[in-house]
């Protein structure tokens, strides 16, 4: 039985095809301005690339912020449910999922059966999201993919007190002018986000094992900070950006 899950995020859209609960196909592409069209294209492309026929798909489930714009799904679920399912499927020891996406972040607690027990979200502003990192990486003229590892080179992290991206940028500019090391600034930025995230974790509490999902999971600086703040080892599932799509497909 083949099932499809599509996660239409604010920056990227991900698709996973499962055959008997094993991943047979995954793709990621930029969501762009027209999420509906992107989702349809990524769906149709999957048949072209795998040779599977549309009629073989037993169920298609959508999730992500763009889920409400599509009408060809069998089921629509929120990212909370999907990230929980996807993470639990990858590792059934996981009891807390921290998902830091492009424009929002969430913490989800799961019970031993893999069901959501509680959750908290931050989707009101860029603070504590991938957007914050991206914006400031751009300010410092650093590739986002290198941002995390650069933070680990810091000897003496600077303190960035603003969580507003605009004010944080001003702070960084003035610290640079004072001669601050780039790696220390980058470490400060990572520390600021992680503190924000750990505040979100506090609001629902956490239980081991903790997993980090979403695009920002690939950032070693964030993982490092969170491990320190929560005093625990964090699991990064394989292909963390696809966890939402995986959870959707598993439904």
């Amino acid at each position: 039985m083949i099932k499809a899950g599509i996660d239409i995020g604010s920056r990227t859209t991900k698709i996973i095809l499962l055959k008997d609960n094993k991943t047979i196909y995954r793709r990621i592409s930029a969501t762009g301005w027209k999420p509906g069209e992107t989702a349809e294209k990524i769906y149709n492309d999957s048949f072209i690339e795998t040779g599977i026929k549309k009629s073989e798909i037993a169920k298609i489930t959508l999730t992500g912020y763009g889920r409400v714009m599509i009408n060809f799904a069998d089921e629509v679920l929120t990212e909370i449910t999907c990230h929980a399912r996807g993470a639990f499927f990858e590792d059934s020891r996981i009891r807390t999922v921290i998902d830091i996406g492009g424009q929002d972040s969430k913490v989800i607690r799961i019970d031993p059966g893999g069901f959501v027990e509680d959750f908290a979200m931050n989707d009101r502003c860029a603070a504590g999201t991938g957007k914050f990192l991206e914006f400031l990486a751009h300010t410092l003229n650093i590739n986002v993919s290198e941002f995390g590892s650069l933070s680990l080179e810091s000897v003496s992290p600077e303190v960035i007190s603003s969580m507003c991206t605009v004010f944080a940028e001003s702070e960084i500019v003035s610290l640079l002018a004072e001669g601050a090391e780039t790696s220390d600034l980058v470490a400060g930025i990572h520390s600021a986000i992680s503190k924000r995230i750990s505040g979100l974790v506090d609001s629902v509490g956490f239980e081991d094992k903790v997993a980090l999902t979403g695009g920002v999971a690939l950032n070693p600086g964030i993982r490092n900070n969170l491990e320190e703040l929560l005093n625990t080892k964090i699991i990064i599932p394989e292909n963390p950006e696809f966890i939402g799509a995986l959870g959707a497909a598993l439904s």
Binding site: Y65, L77, I80, T81, F115, V116, E117, F119, D123
Partner: peptide, 16 residues
């Protein structure tokens, strides 16, 4: 949109 996401996730949680 934000309210909907939370309420829907909440219902999914309860139903599950």
């Amino acid at each position: 949109g934000q309210i909907k996401t939370r309420v829907h996730a909440f219902y999914e949680m309860i139903i599950a």
